[in-house]
Design a binder for these strands. Structure first.
Lengths: 250, 250
DNA sequence: TTGCTCCTCACGTCACGTGAGGTGGC
DNA sequence: TTGCTCCTCACGTCACGTGAGGTGGC
């Protein structure tokens, strides 16, 4: 009965010597013999076991699962394979979702980065990262259908209009805070135009969709960073809420 | 300007304290301040950077890629995202292929393991592993079309017939070796029936397909373990080859 | 003596998890 | 004084890769 040394076995199976050392060390495959000088000597049975290890590894099993499969019954093996299928299914679903996200972002980034002529002209990494942050937040709080609706309405209104609205909000919030600070009641006559404008802008954004309105409020409840960035703390939100209620509600 | 301690920041971003320690240690995000007692104090800019880190990580980037993206220009970011798409595409293709392999094997194993009544009855893990080894070898040396052909012919011939042939081969090889040992020329009259039977069985297997015949010979050249298991070493193969040539060739 | 193969440590990878042992702040 | 949060080590994870330093076999 012939035997093999690590190098020979490695060449035959496509494994490295280090890998065979590793399998020996963790007790997955220890050679049945050693030469006088301490060389590992693998016999036929070892080689047969190694082939099975290699095959099972090619199926994506961990070394622990390989060990379990080799030690267990036919039933164990079936169970391990079914579990592997399940894991692969989950990973594939997660990867597909991730791929679609990255693809959407890359498209948006390319769009933002491309001027009339070349690539990435004029747009800073900071602006792209802001775009990505905003999109991520949107994906977190809005359903795909809501995103499609928002996208469609955004196109109707035009980029120019959206920029104008984004510039207007800080002024409205500052005005509301000013009223609060001066002790003006939210129901006061002075606050009415402000409240009406807020209602107008919100309605424009939600398109009257109650689901989108709920998502907006979830963003402000779940994202302290958004509250901080916009300055819309709970006190201001309540103040504006009461002011809008006084002009007929949202 | 307010600051945050690790715990607060962790809660807000969904990260663990250990993760923030880690980002600090590797210099990805170090807090701009420390309290008198050594507590990490993160300011607004730190929080903004952390949000970007989190978003980029959610895209599947490594910490090194995140660092690069944050340090680089808009162009860097675009490049990183495109590279990520490429990696994801490759991984998805590899996973799909793996999934299909495992699925085929699991189906075959379930088929082999299921008797008339229940699951895995009578079949040992060893037999299932042999099935898997054989299928893996086939997948390695035959194209999908060839596999389909072989499958179809196997069904025609029937499992019974295949088992009989598999039992016959060792006898034919032993007979050839015996002739060799006795110094009988491969062209001798005595060897003719043996040669004719070998030719018959090979033709039955390949169905006269030259591609499949080439694949068979590649298996014996590339897989020493098959040569050893069957005892078909190069000397015997040459002997049989010359014997078959003497009766008209393959 | 020269190559080639073999041996045994032992650190490094990637992104943290998980204690251990101790201190600051209310 | 009691909880709670914070701190700094430092080992463990998974499957090996990659030297370092040394010996056996032709």
């Amino acid at each position: 009965m012939s035997t093999w040394k690590v190098g020979e076995l490695g060449r035959r199976t496509g494994l490295t010597v280090r890998t065979l050392h590793h399998y020996d060390r963790i007790g997955l495959l220890s050679p049945s013999g050693r030469s006088a000088a301490g060389y590992r000597l693998y016999d036929d049975a070892d080689v047969a076991r190694l082939h099975r290890i290699v095959v099972l590894r090619q199926l994506g099993l961990s070394l622990e699962q390989v060990r379990e499969s080799l030690a267990g019954s036919a039933w164990t093996l079936e169970r391990v394979l079914r579990a592997q299928l399940e894991r692969l299914r989950e990973r594939m679903a997660a990867e597909r979702a991730l791929y679609e996200r990255v693809e959407r972002l890359a498209a948006r980034v390319a769009e933002a980065g491309t001027g009339a002529a070349g690539a990435a002209e004029g747009v800073s990494a900071d602006e792209l990262l802001e775009t990505i942050e905003a999109m991520t937040m949107f994906e977190k709080y809005y359903t795909p259908e809501q995103l499609a609706q928002l996208d469609a309405r955004g196109k109707e209104l035009g980029a120019e209009h959206i920029r104008a609205v984004e510039a207007e909000w800080p002024r409205l919030i500052a005005a509301a805070k000013d009223c609060m600070a001066r002790g003006v009641e939210p129901t006061a006559e002075e606050v009415r135009p402000l409240a009406q404008r807020c209602r107008e802008l919100i309605r424009e954004f939600t398109g009257g969709d109650a689901g989108i309105a709920r998502s907006v409020s979830r963003v402000y409840q779940g994202e302290p960073s958004v509250r901080e960035r916009t300055g819309l703390d709970p006190a201001v939100m309540e103040y504006i809420g009461r002011a809008v209620a006084a002009v007929g509600g949202w």
